[in-house]
Simulated scan of single mutants.
Amino acid sequence: MADVARLAGVSAQTVSRVSTGHPGVIESTRRQVLHAMEQLGYRPNSAARALKRGSFRTIGVILFTLATTGNSRTVEAIATQAAQEGYAITLFPVAAPTQDGVLGAFTRLGELAVDGIIVIMEVHLLDAVNLTLPPGVQVVVVDSDAGDRYPVVDTDQADGARQAVRHLLGLGHETVWHVTGPAESFSSERRAAAWRAVLEDAGRVVPPVQRGDWSAASGYAAGLALADEPSCTAIFAANDQMALGVLRALHERGRRVPAEVSVVGFDDIPDAAAYLPPLTTVHQDFAEVGRRCVHGLLEQIHDERAEAGTVLVPTTLVVRESTAPPPVVVSRARPGGNAVVS
């Protein structure tokens, strides 16, 4: 900075103001300083600035996988919102969903100097009594149940599932079969519990679940099993990728969608409208989740007295062409006048 000041013929304080974008510098002086910076190849030292002001303008993000739609789109939304607030993000994937893995990630992110951390915790690790995060670290948790210990931001998983099941029952289906996600997944459990509760409240039979792993391949395997169930006329898949696999399996088995079987997904990925048929699905507002995460974390950073709590972002059912009323039961007369149902 001193070198730039000498070359530009100004004070070091003026160079500092120009490098930070301070408005109190006349334009001709600003151009003179910028030209000197260019000649000397000067770049402001962000690490030194951070040490001086006690803020690094960086948010750490801990997660276990980017393979799922929810996680990848949540990270994208967090990065977008953080940039709008003048923050960068440091992404830290954790290989194993264990207490040691999470605590190790916190330690390493601390060494990288971040102002706060967002934990995308799809599994139930935070529910464990023995898991405590390091004291003094500002944290927001996504997609888990942290009780009253940490602020939580999540999509309203249960209400989204309720909308999907009620839509199918409202079309006249006797019950709804479910392709669920992994057993250890918080969002999968919430969606499955809501599916079951709606059927029980309506006095309907609760069919056995088909367990998937979020992939289209697991949805395909579940779809093959359901295609062989003559009573199956409606399927709620816990995400759109598994719904895609279900659609393929039903097509291969000759079960028409939606004429014979209706299918609903969850996520509303950008390709959902291009499925064949276009998929009825539950829309998640990932941009709003990212905005709430960043704002919640910054609120803690600026006011350590901010209280923990859970923020649920609403979901919306998007109805497309993959759902319809169940097949009509047709009666025909046998010779002699007796009716037969087909």
Results as ranks from 00 to 15, higher is better:
residue 182 P to S: 09
residue 250 L to K: 00
residue 196 R to H: 05
residue 261 V to H: 02
residue 233 T to M: 14
residue 195 W to E: 01
residue 249 A to G: 13
residue 211 R to A: 08
residue 197 A to S: 14
residue 234 A to D: 14
residue 174 E to F: 02
residue 248 R to N: 13
residue 243 A to R: 10
residue 172 G to N: 07
residue 250 L to W: 05
residue 178 H to D: 13
residue 264 V to W: 09
residue 202 A to H: 06
residue 223 G to C: 07
residue 245 G to D: 05
residue 256 R to G: 06
residue 239 N to W: 01
residue 211 R to L: 10
residue 178 H to M: 13
residue 214 W to Y: 14
residue 179 V to G: 08
residue 190 R to D: 10
residue 238 A to G: 13
residue 178 H to E: 12
residue 210 Q to D: 11
residue 246 V to E: 01
residue 225 A to K: 15
residue 248 R to H: 15
residue 239 N to D: 12
residue 173 H to R: 01
residue 222 A to R: 03
residue 243 A to W: 07
residue 241 Q to R: 13
residue 214 W to N: 11
residue 175 T to S: 10
residue 252 E to V: 13
residue 253 R to E: 12
residue 222 A to W: 09
residue 210 Q to N: 03
residue 212 G to C: 04
residue 173 H to F: 07
residue 173 H to P: 04
residue 222 A to M: 08
residue 265 G to P: 00
residue 220 Y to C: 09
residue 256 R to Q: 14
residue 262 S to W: 04
residue 224 L to K: 11
residue 211 R to P: 04
residue 229 E to V: 15
residue 258 P to L: 13
residue 230 P to F: 01
residue 232 C to R: 00
residue 197 A to V: 03
residue 240 D to A: 04
residue 259 A to D: 14
residue 197 A to I: 05
residue 215 S to C: 10
residue 223 G to R: 01
residue 189 E to T: 11
residue 241 Q to L: 11
residue 208 P to W: 05
residue 188 S to K: 00
residue 197 A to G: 02
residue 255 R to Y: 14
residue 197 A to C: 04
residue 188 S to C: 04
residue 225 A to D: 14
residue 203 G to L: 04
residue 211 R to C: 05
residue 197 A to P: 02
residue 174 E to C: 11
residue 234 A to Y: 14
residue 193 A to M: 13
residue 221 A to P: 10
residue 174 E to M: 06
residue 226 L to M: 12
residue 192 A to Y: 05
residue 247 L to H: 02
residue 181 G to V: 04
residue 202 A to F: 15
residue 175 T to W: 11
residue 212 G to I: 01
residue 217 A to W: 02
residue 242 M to N: 06
residue 177 W to Y: 10
residue 261 V to C: 06
residue 197 A to N: 02
residue 262 S to I: 12
residue 202 A to G: 07
residue 212 G to E: 04
residue 230 P to S: 01
residue 261 V to W: 00
residue 213 D to K: 05
residue 260 E to V: 03
residue 233 T to F: 10
residue 210 Q to F: 11
residue 207 P to R: 12
residue 184 E to L: 13
residue 242 M to T: 08
residue 243 A to S: 12
residue 185 S to D: 13
residue 178 H to F: 12
residue 236 F to C: 08
residue 184 E to V: 09
residue 230 P to M: 01
residue 253 R to W: 11
residue 198 V to N: 00
residue 254 G to K: 05
residue 243 A to V: 12
residue 176 V to Q: 03
residue 260 E to T: 05
residue 249 A to I: 01
residue 210 Q to T: 08
residue 175 T to N: 11
residue 239 N to F: 01
residue 230 P to C: 02
residue 243 A to N: 14
residue 217 A to V: 11
residue 204 R to K: 13
residue 219 G to P: 00
residue 182 P to V: 02
residue 253 R to T: 12
residue 258 P to N: 08
residue 235 I to C: 10
residue 235 I to N: 09
residue 218 S to H: 08
residue 227 A to M: 14
residue 251 H to I: 03
residue 215 S to F: 05
residue 172 G to W: 03
residue 180 T to A: 15
residue 192 A to C: 09
